[in-house]
Design a protein around this nucleic acid. Sequence first.
DNA 1: ACAAAAGTGTTGAGAGTACACCCATGC
DNA 2: GCATGGGTGTACTCTCAACACTTTTGT
Lengths: 236, 236
Amino acid sequence: MNISETAENYDVSQYERPSVTVDVVIFSLFDEDLRVLLVKRRSWPSKGMWAIPGGFVHIDETLEDAAYRELAEETHVTRDQVYLEQLYTFGNPGRDPRTRVITVAYFTIVSADQLAPQADDDATDVGWFSVYAPPPLAFDHAQIIEYALKRLRYKLEYSAVGFQFLPEKFTLRELQTAYEIVLGTKLDKGNFRSKLRKANVLEIVDGYRNTGGRPARLYRFREDAVAEVKTRRLFP
Amino acid sequence: MNISETAENYDVSQYERPSVTVDVVIFSLFDEDLRVLLVKRRSWPSKGMWAIPGGFVHIDETLEDAAYRELAEETHVTRDQVYLEQLYTFGNPGRDPRTRVITVAYFTIVSADQLAPQADDDATDVGWFSVYAPPPLAFDHAQIIEYALKRLRYKLEYSAVGFQFLPEKFTLRELQTAYEIVLGTKLDKGNFRSKLRKANVLEIVDGYRNTGGRPARLYRFREDAVAEVKTRRLFP
DNA sequence: ACAAAAGTGTTGAGAGTACACCCATGC
DNA sequence: GCATGGGTGTACTCTCAACACTTTTGT
């Protein structure tokens, strides 16, 4: 074993250091579609291509802080409002032609009602794209989004993150539709409801929503049920 | 948004770069115990404390290559022989007092028969410790091991990684014992076996093992079943 | 009255669990 | 024969999936 290569015997200046960035896959659900926020690159390389929002990790902030910072820069959403989770770290040499860049990818869910209305003056630089038909993406960002979608679906099946796509109050049909769009499959109404009833993670709130048929009850996620839900599968 | 802080408009020399290391939690199973390989630190900080093997990521190698390299340095085990998976990236400022060090943690499983017998000349620098009673650990390595154990247990429950702890041929009792040690619970013999039968991931090989009672059949993992197994839960 | 959507109940198949029982070897 | 550990089967419970049914609104 070459001593000079072990972590415990190094000189800080001895190694060429890679750059470290944080990239954040921001999911939202609107117009009956699962969408991701992308930004248009304004410089070389991949100038003009779309990319996941991201940036350098500051020397004195945590990775999670950096992810929340990137999220806030693009959406003005703050950390107590969203679900955010570290996804994977991508670091192949050559994934960025400029220099060695290792990126810690995160994914997050922002509900449509948390988003400011699209500002059109800025429209060519930032956009929401269907995760099922993304534009050509810079670097390995297509791979990152693909993996984020896989993880999101997986999470949806055994935890309660699906609620993060909806406003505080929602109907069961809205929740089911959210699951169907993200999972890409149709679900049975009766089974969906009975499963949620057994899971005991929702509570009825006052009020109804008119829908064209019988008015639907409004529900809210029970905050005290978060920990409990994480241990068991909800779907399929 | 401050333009100078975005990934797409940067000057390579503009930011102070963190160091990036790879740490590898190496699990093995022997002496009826789940163990991790630790190395004794020979320099400041935490001199004399035990730590997970790790080291710097070279500028031209992938993260996974770096992890395999660290694994090989400590165990001489090569990449086609083991299961290795990226665990999580730990990067809190202050986790290493020298400078900002971001570490990409991996975990791996090495079967006891792959390990060279302990060389005693080196005995004070490298050692296998019970994951249930580790010594005081440097940096945040206790947290990393704890998380690796959690993930390992999780993986065991819905995939076939448990086989990685055993030699190529093994008895069902040996496999069950491996699961029991890692999961920390007793399993029912009949149910364990019928579940494996239904999963259809094993095949009988010739030969028996004498055990003090009726000789036990030897089994081998069916290579062509790997992908299939990943999609469904095996345990509980 | 009828359409539309909300909401509930029933039933059969399969998985999980506890436990009892038989089998083959050494002494 | 008997102890020891390997190996199988059964019966009960619970979950899952498909589908039929009832309820409440608008027109």
